[in-house]
């Protein structure tokens, strides 16, 4: 069944302790190529049948009203899974 992917990230200006912790650990395991890490959330909304514009609109609304906390997070993308 097709899925709609909603990606949520902490707002750029908001402190992201998770990303900070991971960024500090990467060099410890020998990965030096990255200047920063930010950690977000991915949601998969399963649709029965075809994904319609209405589904996408609902997914956007879900993203704004439930999946993200608009005070500290942004919905950065709403897309249909390729598979």
């Amino acid at each position: 069944m097709p899925r709609i992917i909603v990606d949520v990230m902490p707002k750029p200006e908001i402190l992201d302790p998770q990303g900070k912790a991971i960024a500090r650990e990467l060099p410890q395991i020998g990965i030096d190529g990255f200047a920063g890490v930010r950690q977000g959330k991915r949601f998969e909304l399963t649709v029965e049948g075809e994904v319609t514009e209405a589904h996408l609109a609902e997914a956007r609304r879900a993203g704004q009203e439930l999946l993200s906390n608009p005070v500290i997070e942004d919905v950065v993308s709403v897309s249909v899974a390729e598979d």
């Binding site: 302790p17 998770q18 990303g19 900070k20 912790a21 991971i22 650990e25 410890q28 395991i29 950690q39």
Partner: peptide, 14 residues
């Protein structure tokens, strides 16, 4: 251990 922001214990294990 490390704030456990990635997964609990994940970074400490290393």
């Amino acid at each position: 251990s490390y704030g456990d922001y990635l997964r609990a214990g994940a970074i400490a294990a290393k």
